[in-house]
Each structure stands twice: as structure tokens, then as C-alpha cells.
Design a protein around this nucleic acid. Structure first.
Lengths: 186, 186
DNA sequence: CGTCTACCGTTGGAACTCCCAACGAATTGC
DNA sequence: GCAATTCGTTGGGAGTTCCAACGGTAGACG
């Protein structure tokens, strides 16, 4: 609650030496901290660059964010949001499918899936009809319009993904995907 | 507006063949969609499994989500949120640093950084003092308590990351990191 | 000198994701 | 028949990410 900002106003020290470019491979030597990172024992070793932010989780997170942005941007040109495209594509691929199965496949919260399917249905891209075998379930199906749209969106998404993997040779991209798949199935 | 649910109630078809297990490597052959994905020309090739959701962006996103969860869980035991740890570690590493530079380094929105630094400062982990050279800037510094905490948090984060990369041999993990680093520097 | 532009920290708000709890309807097991 | 479970849906809330705007400050230029 009592969250104060701007407390003690004392004199400080130099602050500029951070160039903040995006390369992150080479910084000028600028560890001029007045505190004592070089006089306390318990630091075993510190890598040349960022100590914590070069962790796998951070790196993967950054790359994932960039990929998400690229795909979202590409899909925005088609007027489709990312999750809407994912659901639409999944419905187009897996014939008629129940909402719960859809949510489990795509790791989408059932609550959010309701809204997404409402939007897709309002746009005439998917149809919900009750499953005669299990009247609790909704059989979700694509309409021809939905199938057309998912085609264009898939092309846009693949372009964005190619852009994401552009720095890698095809063989390297395959290796990356294989390693990530192993982590995903864990 | 006018978002209808539960419209036309007609008879459907089979709906059960989705096992929804997590393996994703082998599905039983179940492409029994009554519509025509096999009669239209413009599809060049469709991979054996999920067509869209095996895209790099999706796979990376899923792995990133798992990594984020693991790190967040490990850090929660120390009572620290992920971004708080990231900021604290960055401040500890890069001497006194301005908030804007911090935000650019970690790709954090300035708004969110304000809240994070307020929390860290309220807990006595960091200090903001105005930079005498540029009175617009805040020089953020770690306190000894912050330096102690970041040490424990770094250990927890590294454990979580090891858990994330557990399915990979050390050489494979290094290769994955190298590939991701190339994508990140793009 | 004054003005203009750009940056700094800060605030407010929107959009999206995720989690938990509940309900009526319907299915399954006993 | 009856209990337990599942399904779709609604509701609320926490958390994250991003955008637009503001007053205060610094630097560039005339």
C-alpha cells in the first residue's frame, strides 16, 4: 500500500556508459559500478555478457515473443487474430470436433474458446451443431468461407515463420525444430 | 454486438476420434473430414501431423510457456516474480543504470518497469537516485539485501532452466542455445 | 537568448492469457 | 434409479504486454 516513489534525493554517479544497441555480443568494457561486485567472495563465475538474461528460458521467451509478433502482424493484415487463426486451422484440419477437445489440443482455456468460437461463428467461418451421439458436445465445423480464409492465413503465417527462421540455414532450422519438439514432448 | 450462440440445431456426425494425448508424434490415421481437403488442388503438401500448430512460432511459444512456468514456480518459492528477478539481476550486473536503458535491455515497457522498481524499492532491494548529470534519469542501484536475494534467485532460476532442458544432452542444449541466439540477434 | 525537438519517468487504460468456481444439461458407471 | 463425471457456458479475478499521453528536462539550432 504505502508505496513511495522519489524518496531520498542525493547525488549519484556516472550513468551513461550503456550504449543499449541490440547486438548484445560486444559491449565496451563498462563495469564501473561503485559498489563491490569484485570484493565479495561468493560469486563463482560470471559469463562475459548478461548473467541471467542469457538463460535458456529468457532466450526462448524472447524468440517466442518475436515470432508471436511476426505472426500476429501478418495475420492482422487478414483481419484475423492469432488464436482465432489457430482455432480455425485446427477445426479445418480435425473434421468436426468438440470444443473441449479443441481446447485441450491447442492449450486454450475453455472460457476463451467460447469467445473465439462466437466470433468465428458470427463471421460465418465455423458452425456449431450438437453432436447426436453426445448431446453435451458441440460439433464444430468449418464453413467454405472459413476454409478459404484459413488458406490465406496459413500462407501468411508460414511467411512470418520463414521470416523468423531467416537467419538459419534449412538444415539448421530443422535441427532447431527437432530439439524444440523434444522439449515440447517432455 | 448481436453475438448469437446455439443457432441451428441439426444432426451432425461422428465426433469422438480425437484421443487428445500429449505425444503428438503418432496419431492414428483419422483424417475422415466429410468436406473436401483431398479434392482441391492448391495444397502442395500436408505434414503427417498438425498442419498449422507445428509451425516454429507455435512450437517455440509452447516451449517458452513451459519455461516461463518453471522459472516462475521456482522463483515463487523465493517470493519473487519473474520480471522482478530479471530487473534485479540486471541492476546488479550493470552498475547504476537509468530506467529507460534498463527497459530497453530487458524489453520491458517503461510503465511496467515503474511498478517493478516501486516494488523492489519498497522491499529495500534497489534504490533510485537522480542522476546529477541528467536530472531526467533515475540511477537505479542494488542494495546489499538485493544482491543477496539475486544470488538465491539466480540459483533457483538455473535449476528451473536445467529442468527445462533436461531431455537434451549437454551438447544438444548448447546447440539449441546457439541456434536461438542467432535468431535473437537477428 | 529563445524555440523546437527529443527524451525521461510516470500515469491511465485496453487487450490478451490464464486460473478457479459455478451452473444446467447430459452421459456413464454402479 | 442414483451418483459421479463430463461438457459448454458464464462469471470473476490476477497477471502480462502494449499504446497514448502528460509534465519535466536536456540538447540542437536559429
Amino acid at each position: 500500500m504505502a508505496r513511495m516513489t522519489r524518496g531520498t534525493r542525493r547525488a549519484g554517479s556516472a550513468l551513461d556508459p550503456v550504449p543499449a544497441s541490440g547486438v548484445s555480443a560486444d559491449d565496451g568494457g563498462l563495469e564501473a559500478a561503485p559498489s563491490a561486485p569484485s570484493a565479495d567472495g561468493p560469486e563463482p563465475d560470471l559469463p562475459p555478457l548478461q548473467r541471467i538474461q542469457s538463460l535458456p528460458s529468457w532466450l526462448i521467451g524472447r524468440v517466442a515473443a518475436r515470432g508471436r509478433g511476426l505472426v500476429a502482424e501478418a495475420l492482422a493484415e487478414q483481419g484475423v487474430k492469432m488464436m482465432h487463426h489457430a482455432v480455425l486451422a485446427a477445426v479445418a484440419e480435425l473434421g468436426p470436433i468438440a470444443q473441449a477437445d479443441l481446447g485441450r489440443r491447442l492449450a486454450i482455456d475453455p472460457k476463451d474458446l467460447v469467445g473465439i468460437l462466437n466470433d468465428l461463428q458470427a463471421d460465418g467461418l465455423t458452425v456449431r451443431e450438437p453432436d447426436p451421439r453426445d448431446r453435451r458436445k458441440n460439433a464444430v465445423t468449418v464453413t467454405p468461407a472459413g476454409r478459404d480464409l484459413v488458406e490465406r492465413c496459413a500462407a501468411a503465417a508460414e511467411t512470418a515463420n520463414a521470416q523468423l527462421l531467416a537467419p538459419l540455414a534449412p538444415a539448421e532450422a530443422r535441427r532447431l525444430m527437432a530439439l524444440l519438439a523434444r522439449l515440447h514432448e517432455a
